[in-house]
Protein backbone atom coordinates (compact mmCIF):
# COMPACT_ATOMS: atom_id res chain seq x y z
CA UNK A 1 0.00 0.00 0.00
CA UNK A 2 2.00 2.91 -1.20
CA UNK A 3 1.15 6.53 -1.48
CA UNK A 4 0.72 6.16 -5.24
CA UNK A 5 -2.46 4.15 -4.90
CA UNK A 6 -4.11 6.73 -2.71
CA UNK A 7 -3.07 9.60 -4.88
CA UNK A 8 -4.11 7.90 -8.10
CA UNK A 9 -7.71 8.87 -7.52
CA UNK A 10 -6.70 12.49 -7.40
CA UNK A 11 -5.08 12.38 -10.82
CA UNK A 12 -1.57 12.82 -9.49
CA UNK A 13 1.40 10.80 -10.62
CA UNK A 14 4.50 10.49 -8.55
CA UNK A 15 7.88 9.85 -10.01
CA UNK A 16 11.48 10.67 -9.39
CA UNK A 17 13.03 13.89 -10.60
CA UNK A 18 15.55 11.85 -12.52
CA UNK A 19 12.89 10.00 -14.46
CA UNK A 20 10.81 13.07 -15.15
CA UNK A 21 13.72 15.09 -16.49
CA UNK A 22 15.09 12.25 -18.58
CA UNK A 23 11.64 11.60 -19.99
CA UNK A 24 11.16 15.20 -20.96
CA UNK A 25 14.60 15.35 -22.52
CA UNK A 26 13.76 12.57 -24.92
CA UNK A 27 10.39 13.94 -25.96
CA UNK A 28 11.62 17.01 -27.79
CA UNK A 29 15.18 16.44 -28.81
CA UNK A 30 15.92 18.80 -31.63
CA UNK A 31 18.68 17.80 -34.01
CA UNK A 32 20.98 20.28 -35.66
CA UNK A 33 20.25 20.73 -39.34
CA UNK A 34 23.69 19.86 -40.54
CA UNK A 35 24.42 17.39 -43.28
CA UNK A 36 27.84 16.50 -44.58
CA UNK A 37 27.52 13.93 -47.34
CA UNK A 38 25.50 10.97 -48.55
CA UNK A 39 23.99 10.20 -45.16
CA UNK A 40 22.51 13.69 -45.05
CA UNK A 41 20.23 12.71 -47.91
CA UNK A 42 19.01 9.72 -45.93
CA UNK A 43 18.61 11.97 -42.92
CA UNK A 44 16.45 14.26 -45.03
CA UNK A 45 14.49 11.23 -46.20
CA UNK A 46 13.95 10.25 -42.58
CA UNK A 47 12.66 13.74 -41.86
CA UNK A 48 10.40 13.80 -44.90
CA UNK A 49 6.94 12.42 -45.37
CA UNK A 50 7.61 8.74 -45.93
CA UNK A 51 9.49 8.01 -42.72
CA UNK A 52 8.31 11.02 -40.76
CA UNK A 53 10.62 11.43 -37.80
CA UNK A 54 8.19 13.85 -36.17
CA UNK A 55 6.61 10.79 -34.63
CA UNK A 56 9.47 10.99 -32.14
CA UNK A 57 9.23 14.69 -31.46
CA UNK A 58 12.05 15.44 -33.87
CA UNK A 59 10.36 17.16 -36.75
CA UNK A 60 12.04 20.42 -35.92
CA UNK A 61 15.60 20.63 -37.14
CA UNK A 62 17.28 23.80 -36.04
CA UNK A 63 19.83 25.46 -38.24
CA UNK A 64 21.49 27.11 -35.28
CA UNK A 65 23.53 24.98 -32.88
CA UNK A 66 22.40 27.20 -30.02
CA UNK A 67 18.88 25.87 -30.31
CA UNK A 68 19.57 22.17 -30.72
CA UNK A 69 20.39 19.27 -28.45
CA UNK A 70 21.61 16.64 -30.83
CA UNK A 71 24.36 16.66 -33.43
CA UNK A 72 23.86 14.01 -36.10
CA UNK A 73 27.17 13.69 -37.90
CA UNK A 74 25.74 12.53 -41.21
CA UNK A 75 28.57 11.72 -43.55
CA UNK A 76 32.31 11.63 -43.85
CA UNK A 77 34.28 14.12 -41.78
CA UNK A 78 37.27 15.50 -43.61
CA UNK A 79 40.36 17.03 -42.09
CA UNK A 80 39.15 20.41 -43.27
CA UNK A 81 35.69 19.95 -41.76
CA UNK A 82 36.81 18.47 -38.43
CA UNK A 83 37.49 21.82 -36.69
CA UNK A 84 34.09 23.04 -37.84
CA UNK A 85 32.35 19.97 -36.41
CA UNK A 86 34.16 20.46 -33.12
CA UNK A 87 33.11 24.08 -33.01
CA UNK A 88 29.50 23.17 -33.76
CA UNK A 89 29.57 20.62 -30.97
CA UNK A 90 31.04 23.16 -28.56
CA UNK A 91 28.29 25.58 -29.45
CA UNK A 92 25.49 23.16 -28.57
CA UNK A 93 24.10 24.02 -25.14
CA UNK A 94 24.22 21.32 -22.47
CA UNK A 95 22.80 18.72 -22.28
CA UNK A 96 23.97 17.59 -25.70
CA UNK A 97 24.39 14.35 -27.52
CA UNK A 98 26.02 13.23 -30.74
CA UNK A 99 25.22 10.47 -33.18
CA UNK A 100 27.76 9.18 -35.70
CA UNK A 101 25.60 8.25 -38.65
CA UNK A 102 27.05 5.89 -41.19
CA UNK A 103 30.31 4.03 -41.58
CA UNK A 104 32.37 7.06 -42.56
CA UNK A 105 31.48 9.02 -39.45
CA UNK A 106 31.88 5.94 -37.24
CA UNK A 107 35.22 4.62 -38.45
CA UNK A 108 36.20 6.11 -41.80
CA UNK A 109 34.28 3.55 -43.83
CA UNK A 110 35.59 2.84 -47.30
CA UNK A 111 37.71 5.98 -47.29
CA UNK A 112 40.83 4.93 -45.52
CA UNK A 113 43.02 7.77 -46.69
CA UNK A 114 44.73 11.04 -45.91
CA UNK A 115 41.69 13.29 -46.22
CA UNK A 116 39.18 11.61 -43.94
CA UNK A 117 39.16 11.58 -40.14
CA UNK A 118 38.96 7.90 -39.23
CA UNK A 119 35.86 8.18 -37.12
CA UNK A 120 34.34 11.34 -35.77
CA UNK A 121 35.03 10.09 -32.23
CA UNK A 122 38.52 11.50 -32.71
CA UNK A 123 36.92 14.93 -32.75
CA UNK A 124 33.81 14.85 -30.59
CA UNK A 125 32.47 12.34 -28.04
CA UNK A 126 29.87 10.11 -29.67
CA UNK A 127 26.87 8.52 -27.95
CA UNK A 128 25.46 6.24 -30.64
CA UNK A 129 27.03 4.79 -33.77
CA UNK A 130 24.85 3.78 -36.70
CA UNK A 131 26.23 1.27 -39.19
CA UNK A 132 25.47 1.30 -42.88
CA UNK A 133 26.69 3.08 -45.96
CA UNK A 134 24.41 4.96 -45.88
CA UNK A 135 22.12 3.62 -43.15
CA UNK A 136 18.49 3.39 -44.13
CA UNK A 137 16.16 5.94 -42.56
CA UNK A 138 14.91 3.11 -40.35
CA UNK A 139 18.49 2.70 -39.22
CA UNK A 140 18.68 6.32 -38.23
CA UNK A 141 15.37 6.11 -36.39
CA UNK A 142 16.60 3.02 -34.57
CA UNK A 143 19.75 4.87 -33.64
CA UNK A 144 17.76 7.74 -32.25
CA UNK A 145 15.56 5.41 -30.23
CA UNK A 146 18.71 3.78 -28.87
CA UNK A 147 19.87 7.22 -27.83
CA UNK A 148 16.54 7.82 -26.09
CA UNK A 149 17.01 4.60 -24.19
CA UNK A 150 20.42 5.76 -23.14
CA UNK A 151 19.15 9.16 -22.06
CA UNK A 152 16.27 7.68 -20.10
CA UNK A 153 18.71 5.63 -18.08
CA UNK A 154 21.11 8.45 -17.33
CA UNK A 155 21.84 8.96 -13.64
CA UNK A 156 21.29 12.23 -11.88
CA UNK A 157 24.96 12.41 -10.97
CA UNK A 158 25.94 12.25 -14.64
CA UNK A 159 23.73 15.13 -15.68
CA UNK A 160 25.32 17.95 -17.50
Amino acid sequence: MGIEQKLANLGIVTTTLEKAVNWSRTRAMWPLLSGLACCAIEMMAAEASHYDMSRFGMELMRASPRQSDLLIVAGRVTRKMAPVIRRLYDQLPDPKWAIAMGDCASCGGVFNNYAIVQGVDEVIPVDVYIAGCPPRPEGLIHGILTLYEKVENERLTKWR
Binding site: G108, N112, N113, Y114, Q118, D121, E122, V123, I124, P125
Partner: peptide, 25 residues
Protein backbone atom coordinates in the same frame (compact mmCIF):
# COMPACT_ATOMS: atom_id res chain seq x y z
CA UNK B 1 55.40 9.78 -53.59
CA UNK B 2 52.74 11.08 -51.20
CA UNK B 3 51.47 8.25 -48.98
CA UNK B 4 47.80 7.33 -49.09
CA UNK B 5 47.62 7.72 -45.33
CA UNK B 6 46.32 4.23 -44.80
CA UNK B 7 45.22 3.41 -41.30
CA UNK B 8 45.38 -0.18 -40.09
CA UNK B 9 42.03 -1.89 -40.08
CA UNK B 10 40.65 -3.07 -36.76
CA UNK B 11 39.88 -6.79 -36.50
CA UNK B 12 39.00 -8.89 -33.48
CA UNK B 13 42.58 -10.03 -32.95
CA UNK B 14 44.11 -6.54 -32.95
CA UNK B 15 41.15 -4.49 -31.75
CA UNK B 16 42.59 -3.59 -28.36
CA UNK B 17 46.01 -2.78 -29.73
CA UNK B 18 44.65 -0.32 -32.26
CA UNK B 19 42.09 1.03 -29.82
CA UNK B 20 44.90 2.03 -27.49
CA UNK B 21 46.63 3.93 -30.28
CA UNK B 22 43.54 5.72 -31.55
CA UNK B 23 43.38 9.39 -30.62
CA UNK B 24 39.89 9.41 -29.13
CA UNK B 25 38.78 12.78 -27.96
Amino acid sequence: DYPLGYEEVQFTFNADEIDAKKPYV
